[in-house]
Amino acid sequence: MAEKDKVFAGSIPKFYDTLMVPLIFEVYAIRMAELVSGFSPGAVLETAAGSGAVTRALAPKLGAGARYVVTDLNQPMLDYAAQRQGADARIEWRQADALALPFEAASFDVVCCQFGAMFFPDRIAGYGEARRVLRPGGHFAFSVWDRIEENVFADEVTAAVATLFPDDPPRFLARTPHGHHNVAVIRDELCLAGFTDIVIETYESVSRAPSARDVAIAFCQGTPLRNEIEARDPGALQRATDRAAEAIGLRHGDGPVAGKIQAHVIVAMG
Rank of each mutant, 00 (worst) to 15 (best):
L225G: 02
R251W: 05
E230D: 05
I229S: 01
Q221G: 04
R251C: 07
V215R: 03
R251V: 14
R243G: 02
A258W: 09
L190M: 11
I248V: 15
P224D: 00
P224F: 01
T202I: 11
R232D: 00
D242W: 03
A240V: 12
D233E: 12
A212G: 13
F195Y: 15
G255H: 07
A193C: 09
R239Y: 02
G235P: 07
A231D: 14
A212F: 10
T241W: 04
A231S: 13
A240S: 09
A240W: 10
I198D: 06
F219A: 08
L190R: 04
G255A: 13
A245I: 08
P256M: 08
G194V: 11
D233I: 15
D254F: 10
R239K: 14
Q238T: 14
G222Q: 04
R208W: 05
D242A: 12
A209H: 05
V206Q: 12
A245P: 02
A236N: 07
V257I: 09
E201T: 13
V199S: 08
I248G: 04
I198P: 04
A209Y: 07
L192R: 15
I200G: 04
Q221W: 00
N227W: 03
G222I: 06
R208H: 11
E228T: 06
A193H: 05
L237M: 13
I200R: 02
A209E: 08
D254G: 04
A244T: 08
V206N: 03
E246P: 02
N227E: 14
E230Q: 14
P256W: 00
